[in-house]
Amino acid sequence: MKLLTHNVLSSKCLKGVSVGYPLRLNATDIKVVDVDYNSEFVQRMIPKINYSALYDAAQSIGHHNGLPDTVAEDYEHNEEFLKAVHHVLLEVDIVSGDLECPESGRKFPITRGIPNMLVNENEVNEINDSNGY
């Protein structure tokens, strides 16, 4: 699982959880892989991702080297910054560990790089029509 995926996952499907974001990342096995650099994709993702959650997640697993703690102002033209984001978003792969809901403490295990987001019926949040989804 890439840190990009971590950046977009939430546990708000759980009963009683209102935001469920960001999930705490505990990694027991990390692999660094090569992914072709696509400057346009990284540029498009920067306004979408939660940058501080990305930075914190990378830092918590010791892979924030080269990543500034805030978005560079001229990021579209800052190749060095875009490449650092590319690396952290797409090349740092969590092979095993877990994701922890910040509100309930519920853990979602990651095995073979695949997070298990299945929940039991009694854990799911019943939604009704007036709910602001």
């Binding site: 974001y21 790089g113 987001m117 299945l118």
Partner: peptide, 22 residues
């Protein structure tokens, strides 16, 4: 999918429980 070494990330989840994304 894992063995096929697809580029995308995989998540084990049930559609009926909702999509767990921001």
């Amino acid at each position: 999918a894992h063995d096929r070494e697809v580029e995308g990330d995989l998540i084990l989840g049930d559609m009926g429980e909702g999509m767990p994304f921001r």
